[in-house]
Design a protein around this nucleic acid. Sequence first.
DNA 1: ACCTGAACACCGTTCAAGT
DNA 2: ACCTGAACACCGTTCAAGT
Lengths: 205, 205
Amino acid sequence: MSPRDPNPPTRAPRRTKDDVVDAALRLLDGVGLPDLSMRRLADGLGVQPSALYWHVASKQELLAAVSGRILAPVVLRPGDPADLAGAAVTLGHRLHDRLLAHRDGAEVVSSSLALGLAPSPVHDALGDSAAARVIADAVTHYVVGFTFHEQQRRSADAWGAAAPAVSLTAASVEGTDDDGFAAALGLIAAGIARSADGVAVARGA
Amino acid sequence: MSPRDPNPPTRAPRRTKDDVVDAALRLLDGVGLPDLSMRRLADGLGVQPSALYWHVASKQELLAAVSGRILAPVVLRPGDPADLAGAAVTLGHRLHDRLLAHRDGAEVVSSSLALGLAPSPVHDALGDSAAARVIADAVTHYVVGFTFHEQQRRSADAWGAAAPAVSLTAASVEGTDDDGFAAALGLIAAGIARSADGVAVARGA
DNA sequence: ACCTGAACACCGTTCAAGT
DNA sequence: ACCTGAACACCGTTCAAGT
């Protein structure tokens, strides 16, 4: 065991920032955002709470990294529509899917985006022309907001079955949310197709 | 001073739920959502923290009541456009204005709406036809999300002047946000006008 | 009807010190 | 480089008891 031994004596296992973000994402899925505390996270990693602050500067920065993980697959891929409207709709659905893939995903991403701590994947994918920015804004805020609402409804239904409200009016139990989601996204797409470049809108008081 | 004296001896001033909500809204404007605690609120009212729980069941219920106050003026008024697209745009601008009128207004309203604890004024104003619901969803989520982002940007700029980013690309310093906002809202309006009733949208993987 | 006092079970974050 | 130990300054909420 020379000082340069490539296999030094096994020391206590140490963590990397990636490990911490991994653990945070799994804890999020396990207990939800309200119960995702730095102390619980440290517990799961077998570490003191203060140790986390060697890896991340704050809880907000950690949640931004978690958001980055959630959003990573929201990109344009070969074979995707080349026109702005088509690409925007594709990205919108992909974003929706990713947010639903993790408990409270929309809420986590919503605040990270608002704080400017996570890059917006739709903006990144569509480029930074003026028209693209407007479209990315509309799609991103609509999808995140809709999914946030959707996820709260689901967890409320799951916890207490406090009267399924007026869900009788819906024909299909599972298809309803997705249909409403797709319809409004189509609305935005129709707006993109119609307004092309110049958008005129009357300012209502 | 009979037992039925209409002007009984002045007792210690007591609070109503309205007083508590008023104080919460003023405290929100003063210190922002992260520092709006039940203890601070109780302090301002000259009361023990536990006393608040006689008036409200939880902090979330209190914030929902605050949201209700913020959103109260978001209604259709005589003289407003009668068509769905025009009414939706008018309500969108009115909602935007109300959210900006209070510190962290968009964040407070965003979670109250997601939790279903505050009624959505755009949905209420547009009625509950299938088309109206889709439009109300698009407008509400877009406006709340955009304004949430906008308010975080503003308070970040205000606190630390940590590099105004790429704001040089914008011609007018103050008009920029509003222009982007109106453009995307116009996009949605154009979608409403175009899709009329039947919306066809291709589901991108 | 409205509130106090005291407690329960927690938080995020900092920082000197250890290895 | 990575973590411990201990503390600081807080939280939301409950509940018996007071007036």
